[in-house]
Design a protein around this nucleic acid. Sequence first.
DNA 1: ACCCAGGTGGCCC
DNA 2: GGGCCACATGGG
Length: 206
Amino acid sequence: MTKIYKLYISLLKKYRGPQEFWKKWCKTKKTRQDRTAIALGAILTQRTNWRNVELALKNLKKARALSIRKVHQTDRKLLEKLIKPSGFYRQKAERLIGLCRFVVKNFKTLEKFFKQPLKICREQLLALPGVGPETADSILLYAGHKPIFVIDEYTRRFAKKHRLTEELSYNNLQQLFQQNLPKNVKIYRDFHALIVLDAKKSKSSI
DNA sequence: ACCCAGGTGGCCC
DNA sequence: GGGCCACATGGG
C-alpha cells in the first residue's frame, strides 16, 4: 500500500466514513437534474464557497431552470440574476451558457456527452472558455462518474503538508494521486471530499 | 470594516 | 514560465 493510499485510509477512519458533500444535490442516483446541478455547480464554485453555490442552485431549481436545455434557453440577464449569490455572476452566466450550448448543440444531453471516452470529454471541456483543469475534472468525476482525480487548493496544501512531492503543478499532482491509488471513482471522490473536510476542521480548531 | 472563499483568462515581461 | 489583475457575492 502506498503512502497516499494510507493517508486516505487514515482520513476515512478519522471521520468514520466518506463525506459525500455533493449528495445533497444527488439524492437519487445519476438523474439528469443531479448531473446537471453538479456540472453547473463546478463552474459556480470557482473561487467561491459551496454555500453560496447552493443559494444559486436553489434559485435555478425554483425557477425550474436547473437543466442544461433550460439554461441554454434562459435569457442571460435572468440567468445572471438567479446565480448572483455565487459571485462573479456575469462571467459565470457566460460560462454556464457556453457549456450548455456546447452540450445541447453537439449531444443534446450530458448523458450522451459522457458516453465518449474520458480523454475526449476532458479535451472538449477544456476547450470551453472559463473551464480550466479543476472545473473540467470536477465535472468529469462528480457529474460524469469518470475516474479522474481533482486537484484544487486543498489538495495542493495537503500534498505540501505531507511532503508528497516538490512539484505542485496540476498535472504532476494529478499523476501522483492517480498512480498511488486504485483507479476507482468512489475513492477519488471520497478522498477529495475528506481532504477538504480535514482542512476545514483543522483550520477551525486552531 | 475588514478578510476570505473548491479558478480562469488576459496581460505583461 | 511566472507575477499580477479583474471578476462579485455572502458570511465570519
